[in-house]
Design a binder for these strands. Structure first.
Lengths: 123, 123
DNA sequence: CCTAGTGTTATATTTTACTATTACACTATA
DNA sequence: TATAGTGTAATAGTAAAATATAACACTAGG
């Protein structure tokens, strides 16, 4: 797994698994790979993976069953809530950044529009 | 200055000064506060400020004159280039993130639109 | 009951960012 | 020419993240 060295690895692992849950790669109620397997998958240490999992457990997205494994919550509302939360966080961040660069609301909207239109074209 | 503990301080300082240059708070050719004063301003150590400045000097945005001070480049094209680069980076990041959450191009655009329309309303 | 697989925790070590402090090199100016 | 203000660099110490490794607690299945 590719890591951004500006952000803690455990934080990136958490984000990665959240994405898998939200996109349905990991279904509600599904068992996750074991912590040791996850550590291999993302090329990180067991303790680092565990730290990421602990936060997801605390958030109620993952249920831990000692001796059996970790499971995605079956409460789908928690998952949709998580998605809207992540989306909103992203939007707030980019808005704040572009606003701080003196872009008006209109400019922000059109810049997003142009980015989407032109992506893939520029070589 | 408020820091995000997930991102290196020197990196946030660099970003902060870049914003001041792009918004014109710091004009082309203008002298920056001394590194010691900057350290006080942002409540960080001189070495940390220096590390941020070093990267900006390497990028050609800041010119260092030993014994005199640090100055914003007078080449305005470098500044406009920097702005477009920062904006594009932000757009690419948010697009990648939202796309990874399974949002379509249309959904991304409308979510930005709705965010802008509704911000300030939500309490 | 034993064993393999699971989550959990603990210890020691390494790495990196940050800090505190000091010193050095250069410039302007009184 | 002395001095104050500037950038620059080096040293030593602290803190947090990540690693390697080991041990413990629990579950399922033979």
């Amino acid at each position: 797994m590719h890591f951004d060295d500006k952000i803690p690895i455990y934080y990136q692992i958490k984000n990665h698994i959240y994405h898998e849950i939200i996109t349905g790669t990991l279904q509600p109620g599904e068992k996750l790979p074991s912590v040791r397997q996850l550590a291999v998958d993302v090329t990180a240490n067991v303790n680092t993976v565990q730290r990421a999992l602990s936060e997801m457990i605390a958030a109620g997205i993952i249920e831990s069953k000692r001796g059996r494994g970790n499971f995605v919550t079956m409460e789908t509302t928690k998952i949709t809530d998580l998605k809207t939360q992540l989306v909103t966080t992203q939007l707030a961040h980019v808005y704040q950044q572009l606003h701080a660069l003196n872009l008006s609301d209109e400019e922000i909207l059109t810049s997003v529009q142009h980015y989407i239109e032109r992506k893939g074209q520029a070589k």
